[in-house]
Simulated assay, not measured.
Amino acid sequence: MYSLVFKLFLVLSLFQICVSGRKLAEEEEGNQFQLLKYHKGALLSGKISVNIIWYGKFKPSQRAIISDFITSLSSHSKSTPLNQPSVATWWKTTEKYYKLAGADKNPSSSSLSLTLGKHILDENCSLGKSLTDREIRKLASKGDQHDAVNVVLTSADVAVQGFGMSRCGTHGYAPGLGKRGTKFAYIWVGNSETQCPGQCAWPFHAPVYGPQSPVLVAPNNDVGIDGMVINLASLLAGTATNPFGNGYYQGPQTAPLEAASACPGVYGKGAYPGYAGNLLVDTTTGGSFNAYGANGRKFLLPALYDPTKSACSTMV
């Protein structure tokens, strides 16, 4: 299981690691993938459905924000202004990992296409409102276990082991049903609005520790859900490029730096610890964002590590 640790707690040290990694990559000619090492394992590939298990009560408007984000990954919305950054172009950075892994030589594993799958509602919290990792896996198993990533989203009143203390979400894998040796990938992200927004909803909430800067307005006017989008985006990138613990990562296998977590706290150009970077601002709502999505949505997404440039890639 690979947790999305608090960016704010580690941003100073991890930012330095990212910078140091880029310098090393530039100095070592011919090795453009210095920061994240490929461990020769499978990447997530093919046509994959993203199934969402909604645990606890979510408003229809909140479910729509998350659904639109997932839908935006695979298509450039007609409502997106020309030559403007989109969720789909943000996601294309992950394709570079596949090419470096040599997956393009195998047509069956050369690409990944994500589509919004099933919605499973558990509004009455069948397992209670205090969950362990084992129970998260149990909830994740309710989704399809073939050609799927099952995403468990917990509402603001649900406590999860380690949430608000050491992580904002996590991704992992579990044994699947049917043929022996099968496994499926899953993700968990919690709504931090009332429990730990200072750890998991920055830059839409003041951080508990570290440099203090003006709080940004959430692009969809929902601090908890917009924070979940950031964490879900980061974990989806980690799941695609390191689904079973032997793909692209750096550091210990149990707490790896991955495609997004290798660029902590970076959202736009000029970012530094405590400052998310230069972002777009909605002139009507004042919301800060860096990507357009489906149905006129605007999202703030984390920078992804670009293996071909040995640098954190931002769209704005």
Rank of each mutant, 00 (worst) to 15 (best):
M1S: 12
Y2K: 06
S3V: 03
S3C: 12
L4Y: 01
F6S: 01
F6C: 11
K7I: 05
K7W: 07
F9N: 13
V11K: 10
L14Q: 10
L14G: 12
F15C: 14
Q16I: 14
Q16N: 15
I17A: 11
V19E: 13
R22H: 14
E28G: 10
N31G: 13
L36N: 00
L36P: 00
Y38M: 08
A42T: 09
K47S: 10
K47L: 09
S49M: 08
S49D: 14
V50S: 06
Y55D: 05
G56P: 03
G56I: 08
P60N: 11
S61C: 11
A64N: 07
I65R: 02
I66P: 04
I66N: 06
D68S: 08
I70L: 08
T71N: 13
H76M: 12
K78W: 13
K78H: 13
S79P: 06
T80V: 12
N83K: 12
V87P: 00
A88D: 12
T94R: 04
Y97Q: 00
Y98N: 08
Y98L: 03
K99D: 14
K99M: 12
K99R: 10
K105W: 14
L114W: 04
L114K: 05
L114V: 11
T115L: 14
L116T: 05
K118Q: 15
I120W: 11
L121E: 14
L121P: 01
N124P: 03
G128E: 13
L131M: 04
L131Y: 05
E135P: 01
K138N: 13
L139H: 09
H146F: 13
H146T: 13
D147V: 03
D147C: 09
N150D: 10
V151F: 02
V151I: 13
A156I: 12
A156Y: 04
D157W: 11
V160W: 02
V160R: 01
Q161C: 03
G162T: 06
F163Q: 01
F163W: 04
F163T: 01
M165Q: 15
M165F: 10
R167F: 06
C168L: 01
C168H: 02
Y173V: 03
G176P: 09
G176A: 15
G178W: 13
T182Y: 07
F184H: 08
G190N: 02
G190W: 02
N191A: 06
S192T: 08
T194D: 09
Q199E: 13
Q199A: 09
Q199Y: 07
W202T: 00
A206I: 07
V208A: 15
V208G: 12
Q212A: 00
S213M: 08
S213E: 01
A218D: 02
D222R: 01
V223C: 05
I225C: 02
D226R: 01
D226E: 02
L232M: 03
A233L: 04
L235I: 07
L236M: 12
L236W: 02
A237W: 02
A237K: 05
G247D: 04
Y248N: 03
Q250V: 12
T254A: 15
A255R: 09
A255H: 07
L257V: 05
E258T: 03
E258Q: 11
A260V: 01
A260C: 10
A262E: 02
A262R: 06
P264Y: 08
P264M: 07
P264V: 07
Y267F: 15
V281I: 09
F289R: 04
N290D: 07
N290A: 06
N295T: 09
G296E: 12
R297S: 15
K298A: 06
P302L: 00
Y305H: 14
P307E: 09
K309G: 12
A311N: 15
